[in-house]
Amino acid sequence: MRSRHVSRVIAASPEVVYAFAADPDNLTRWAAGLAQGAVVREGDSFLVDSPMGRVTVTFVPHNGFGIIDHDVALPSGEVVNNPVRVIAHPEGAEIVFTIRQLALSDDDFLRDAAAVERDLDTLKNLIEQGS
């Protein structure tokens, strides 16, 4: 199983990046690879329509370490863990998303990585434009 770390440096403090990216209400604004429509709270989890179908997303509790790990329960019942970190960077903050190949084909793994890159580009642009 391969892993790939996709990151973007964002010209904002780690606290600003974390607050925006960790807010489930912002998912549809920047995470098109995960959320395409309303985010519905169900207890400690969130139901979202995604390119993979209706999924359940469960985030780690808010914390002071910049950790935005989340589990995505797919329609098949499989649960995928997604490690995400916001860390300090000399130019502001860096957000790092770890993608794991798991059972994906090489082509699907590359498509997933490209989707995460697009999502992080969108996040960067939104935050740097003050959204």
Score class of each variant (00 low, 15 high):
residue 106 D to N: 14
residue 109 F to P: 02
residue 93 A to T: 01
residue 109 F to I: 01
residue 116 V to P: 03
residue 92 G to Q: 11
residue 94 E to K: 14
residue 117 E to G: 03
residue 105 S to H: 09
residue 79 V to R: 13
residue 88 A to L: 04
residue 82 N to Q: 07
residue 113 A to Q: 14
residue 98 T to I: 10
residue 81 N to H: 12
residue 90 P to C: 05
residue 95 I to C: 06
residue 94 E to Q: 15
residue 116 V to S: 04
residue 88 A to V: 09
residue 82 N to W: 12
residue 115 A to S: 11
residue 84 V to H: 01
residue 92 G to S: 05
residue 105 S to V: 10
residue 104 L to S: 13
residue 102 L to I: 09
residue 81 N to G: 10
residue 107 D to L: 15
residue 119 D to K: 04
residue 112 D to E: 14
residue 117 E to H: 00
residue 102 L to K: 10
residue 94 E to F: 08
residue 113 A to W: 00
residue 118 R to N: 05
residue 101 Q to S: 06
residue 92 G to F: 04
residue 106 D to L: 15
residue 110 L to D: 14
residue 84 V to L: 11
residue 107 D to P: 01
residue 84 V to G: 03
residue 119 D to F: 01
residue 119 D to Y: 01
residue 91 E to Q: 15
residue 115 A to I: 07
residue 85 R to M: 11
residue 79 V to H: 05
residue 101 Q to N: 06
residue 107 D to R: 15
residue 83 P to V: 12
residue 111 R to E: 13
residue 99 I to R: 02
residue 104 L to Q: 13
residue 103 A to R: 14
residue 95 I to P: 00
residue 112 D to W: 05
residue 112 D to V: 09
residue 89 H to P: 03
residue 83 P to T: 04
residue 113 A to N: 04
residue 107 D to Y: 04
residue 91 E to S: 14
residue 114 A to R: 15
residue 111 R to T: 12
residue 93 A to E: 07
residue 80 V to Y: 00
residue 114 A to V: 02
residue 94 E to L: 02
residue 80 V to R: 11
residue 81 N to Q: 12
residue 107 D to S: 13
